[in-house]
């Protein structure tokens, strides 16, 4: 696998330029790794450690602290459903169950064909438009067990 410095050297340089201290680039570089490889691979963590002058263990510690970074490949459509209080009060649980049934996977899993992965997540700050979910980071509001199929069908 070519390194990020081979694939997109300008992006790496641009990130490093942005901070007075190099280490601050860790999270942006983890995002870049996600973008380049589809997940934060061990090789990417090693490369980031080298770029930042820190250890791979340190980078793994950081990457695993933040729940958004996928340390394993995700589905083509990664669905994150808020199950926190405001969404829960207006139907997040039935929504989640519906998705689990329909996709045949549980939270934290990926469908065998790799098309979908599902994750229940904490509050997404859409409480006033609950229930809410994200598909590959795009937000959908007032999604319920009743209207979610429409959304799924629209995904290729």
């Amino acid at each position: 696998m070519p390194s990020m410095r081979e694939t997109c050297p300008e992006k790496v340089e641009d990130i490093l330029r942005r901070f007075p201290q190099r280490k601050s680039a860790s999270i942006p570089l983890l995002y870049l790794a996600w973008e380049v490889y589809g997940y934060v691979s061990p090789e990417a963590m090693e490369e980031i450690a080298e770029i930042l002058g820190t250890s791979p263990a340190d980078v793994e510690g950081i990457a695993s602290f933040y729940t958004m970074f996928p340390l394993k490949p995700l589905g083509k459509h990664h669905i994150e459903v808020c199950t926190n209080i405001s969404c829960h009060l207006v139907g997040a649980q039935p929504l989640m169950s519906h998705l689990e049934n329909r996709l045949g996977i549980k939270s934290g899993e990926r469908t065998e064909d790799g098309r979908f992965s599902l994750q229940s997540v904490e509050c997404l700050a859409a409480c006033a438009w609950a229930p809410c979910l994200h598909v590959n980071g795009k937000e959908y509001q007032k999604v319920t067990a009743e209207n979610v199929d429409e959304l799924l069908n629209s995904l290729d």
Binding site: T54, S55, A57, D58, E60, G61, S64, F65, T67
Partner: peptide
Amino acid sequence: GNAELAVINR
């Protein structure tokens, strides 16, 4: 050492 150990996860 070279920071070979880390706290993993949260």
